[in-house]
Simulated scan of single mutants.
Amino acid sequence: MADPAAPSDAELDVLKCFWRDGALSAREVQDRIRDRLDWSPSTTRTVLERMRAKGLLSRREVHGVVVYASAQPKVAVIGGLMKRLSDLLDLDGPLPAAAFSGSQILDAEDIAALEAVLAADEATSDGEGA
């Protein structure tokens, strides 16, 4: 069964906005996703609140404007997705994070951190079966 806190594809599109630009208002998110997701402003606000309930976003008020931000580090979210894909494919080891070196949202530091997360997860998985 899927992890209820795992982001959906649409939620990943929204998270990428935060990973690229930092904290954003619902209107700013709406402006950034308009071309990819044909959502009304009220749908965008609803999705942002659902993502907050899932622990994917945080919310605060800045000068009277509600602003959201990613509550999970992008490396942790992407590492979780890679682990799910690896499990789905019944791979013997983790997917190599270096495969994402052409990513527009992961820099070299992120890829190194992702490799460390995946290696630590692999070491933990190996230890569980012992």
Rank of each mutant, 00 (worst) to 15 (best):
P4S: 04
P4G: 09
A5L: 04
A6Q: 10
S8E: 03
D9R: 13
A10L: 02
E11P: 08
L12C: 15
D13A: 06
K16H: 08
C17T: 00
W19D: 13
W19R: 14
R20M: 00
D21P: 10
D21R: 12
R27Y: 13
E28C: 04
V29D: 00
V29K: 03
D31L: 01
D31P: 06
L37P: 07
L37Q: 13
W39Q: 11
W39Y: 15
W39L: 15
W39H: 12
S42A: 07
S42H: 12
S42R: 10
T44H: 09
T46I: 01
V47A: 12
E49M: 07
E49H: 14
M51D: 02
A53H: 09
G55T: 02
L57Y: 12
S58C: 05
R59F: 04
R60A: 10
G64H: 00
S70H: 08
V75N: 14
A76P: 13
I78A: 13
I78Y: 15
L81W: 01
L81R: 14
K83A: 14
L85I: 08
S86T: 08
D92Y: 08
P94F: 00
L95F: 02
A97C: 00
A99K: 03
S101G: 12
S101L: 03
S101H: 15
G102W: 02
I105D: 14
L106P: 05
A108M: 03
E109L: 09
D110Q: 06
I111F: 09
L114T: 07
V117Q: 15
L118I: 06
A123I: 02
T124P: 05
D126S: 13
G127D: 08
A130C: 04
